[in-house]
């Protein structure tokens, strides 16, 4: 059984992803901008640089730090989130831990790589967009990673077919409406290797559905990787051509 979702997508379709590298004119070493549907995120990366505070120095590897800012105007209602907001802290930790494991930190001992993310507009899949944006900004900054870190969300529709025994398809890349309505999870993989580096889920779902959701999420990640890779290559080519002239 196949139907259309409220924004006209099929179950396995991503929203439009638009990404850009080196967007910022500021002194950041790398920057990126990503739009996934109406979710819009800016990311700046500084480093590897000398750590801003002594406690962050690690003798054998680089420290990855992450700051997430929700713009007050990013949601439907105006909400100001402070630095100590629970959701902000959770996002920061998730992103920091993910990248700490993927960046080749042993190459930059006693230095700090700081990722700062600004969420300008939220429409579901905030964590996924943040991670994708951070990946692009890190690539722009030239920081070595084992592969692209790609994130995507998947949700499990709880439709009427459930009771009749037919299993409904999980939905790929949920938007805000779907996210608030059905259980969903965020899968983060390294490249298209199907290796999951982070998985986050905040709702209840039946255990037999989980497998399918993760599988759909992983396939979404592979597609996100393709889109990001295309943009990175396009940007790299453009940059090289500009330098060649």
């Amino acid at each position: 059984m196949e139907g259309l979702r409220n924004d006209g997508r099929r179950w396995n379709e991503l929203r439009r992803i638009h990404c850009q590298l080196s967007t910022s004119s500021t002194n950041a070493d790398g920057s990126s901008y990503i739009e996934q549907g109406f979710t819009k995120v800016i990311c700046n990366v500084t480093g590897p640089a000398e750590p801003s505070n002594r406690q962050r120095v690690k003798q054998d590897s680089a420290t990855v730090s992450c700051e997430v800012y929700f713009a007050a105007f990013s949601g439907t209602d105006r909400i100001k989130r402070g630095r100590n907001d629970k959701k902000v802290q959770e996002l920061q930790t998730a992103i920091q831990k993910t990248f700490d494991s993927v960046i080749l930190t042993h190459l930059f001992a006693r230095s700090e790589i700081s990722i700062s993310i600004h969420i300008l507009s939220q429409d579901g899949g905030t964590l996924a967009a943040c991670i994708n944006a951070a990946t692009l900004a890190l690539i722009d900054a030239g920081i070595p990673m084992s592969d692209y870190v790609c994130a995507c969300t998947a949700g499990q529709s709880t439709s009427i077919f459930d009771q009749e025994g037919a299993s409904p398809d999980p939905w790929l890349d949920v938007n805000y409406l779907e996210e608030s309505d059905i259980p969903s999870l965020t899968v983060v993989t390294v490249g298209d290797s199907e290796k999951i580096v982070a998985l986050s889920m905040e709702n209840k779902v039946r255990i037999e559905r989980l497998e399918a959701m993760i599988a759909v999420g992983i396939s979404g990640c592979a597609r996100v990787r393709g889109i990001m890779d295309k943009e990175v290559r396009r940007y790299g080519k453009e940059k090289l051509e500009a330098e060649g002239e």
């Binding site: 700051e67 007050a72 700062s116 600004h118």
Partner: peptide, 12 residues
């Protein structure tokens, strides 16, 4: 009106 200055990384 509120003005928020992003405390990016090293500078605070």
């Amino acid at each position: 009106i509120s003005v928020e200055v992003a405390g990016g990384g090293a500078s605070g």
